[in-house]
Design a protein around this nucleic acid. Structure first.
Lengths: 209, 209
DNA sequence: GCCACTGTGGACCTGCTGGTCCATTTTACG
DNA sequence: CGTAAAATGGACCAGCAGGTCCACAGTGGC
């Protein structure tokens, strides 16, 4: 059973599977080829479904499907950073920060141009008010996790307590986002690494740890 | 006289003016509404031209026009940062860096979502191999200007000589780019400012100046 | 003032894309 | 089983975007 907008539809196991297949296929197609150029027919072909199925599971049409894809990608972005980044505040040692940094960089090195974050922020996120809200939430949640990490480090005397934790978290997000955007344009992770490393290294300059 | 691809066409003064009007109108339209949703008809309406004119000046069709727009925007991005950033290496004092930072932030505050950089990197830049080369060149030129600034500061003993100047420049570009991308998604310049300020402040921590 | 070339207008064509519709098959469940 | 609801297949439609074409007007050099 799933609710979309005002209507509620019952889904059988088979139906749920099909719906999932469509969303994931659409997400993959969009990551590979961009949202702008991906058509419903591409998705249909990739997921071995018919037109009617797409509109059956997403009565709102393409917009609704793309919103579902955006939600999936937003989830994936946070998941990818687990367990470095969770409610328990695992970013509590320099090693943890380094691990997080490595996880981010390695992931984008492997994925190259096809990254959820880039697609979400630069293509899906701006499409509709609903998807804008979604990206806003993602950003807020992500930033709050990083902020908690900074606060934790400050609490342990490992980072300068004079730093504005929230602002620092925002800077880190911008660094990742900028690195990813450049990656998508050039195919190189150099900027991503430079931005993350520079910021982290300078954060660590507070003491000798 | 203008060369496009293999063909060369002579332009009268009137022709050159029309061509310019089309490119600039297209650029403005795209900045406001995004490249994905801007149609030739929109451009036609805005620039008071006919279909045949667009194809007369851009025989390659939409791709060629968008490439011209990308080139225009790339130029504008560097121009916007003049005279902070030029071949003479004006980034030679902390005040100059602060001025540059202010120029960047103020510009995007005023422009809001409609920024050349964002559109170029996230929409135009990925369209064709030609536009990819173009964004690559922009990035290289920009980074080299910033790198010269860092080197200059290092030479004067104002920045840590141990820093890799090129890497630092890359980090700054990623910071701006990330800030802009977030700006386009959320409408807020908070991340842009946080990223720039954090990076610059930490760069300045080397000495007390 | 003539002639060739450039500039302009706009009708028209075509393919693609999102979206609709309905007939048919499959599933859930009493 | 039997039936209602869910799932599926795919033909069909309408609009729109990019692109072509041709007729005509404007311009510039000789």
């Amino acid at each position: 059973m799933i609710t979309s907008g005002t209507t509620t539809v019952r889904l059988t196991a088979k139906g749920a599977a099909t719906r999932l297949r469509i969303v994931e296929g659409a997400a993959a197609e969009i990551r590979e080829r961009g949202a702008a150029t991906t058509t419903l027919d591409d998705i249909r072909a990739r997921t071995a479904t018919s037109k009617s199925q797409i509109f059956h599971y997403f009565p709102g049409g393409k917009d609704e499907l793309l919103l579902a894809v955006a939600a999936l990608e937003a989830e994936r972005i946070l998941e990818d950073q687990q367990p470095h980044l969770d409610d328990l505040g695992r970013l509590d040692t320099w090693q943890a920060w380094r691990d997080w940094r490595d996880a981010v960089v390695r992931r984008y090195e492997r994925q190259g141009v096809n990254c959820p974050l880039g697609v979400l922020m630069t293509e899906l996120g701006r499409r509709t008010p609903a998807s804008q809200r979604l990206t806003g939430q993602l950003l807020a949640q992500w930033q709050s996790a990083l902020r908690d990490g900074v606060r934790c480090m400050q609490g342990s005397g490992l980072m300068d307590p004079a730093l504005d934790a929230d602002r620092t978290a925002a800077a880190l997000i911008a660094a990742v986002q900028g690195g990813v955007t450049v990656l998508m344009a050039t195919g190189s992770t150099a900027h991503l690494e430079a931005a993350l490393d520079t910021t982290l290294e300078l954060l660590g300059r507070f003491d000798a740890e």
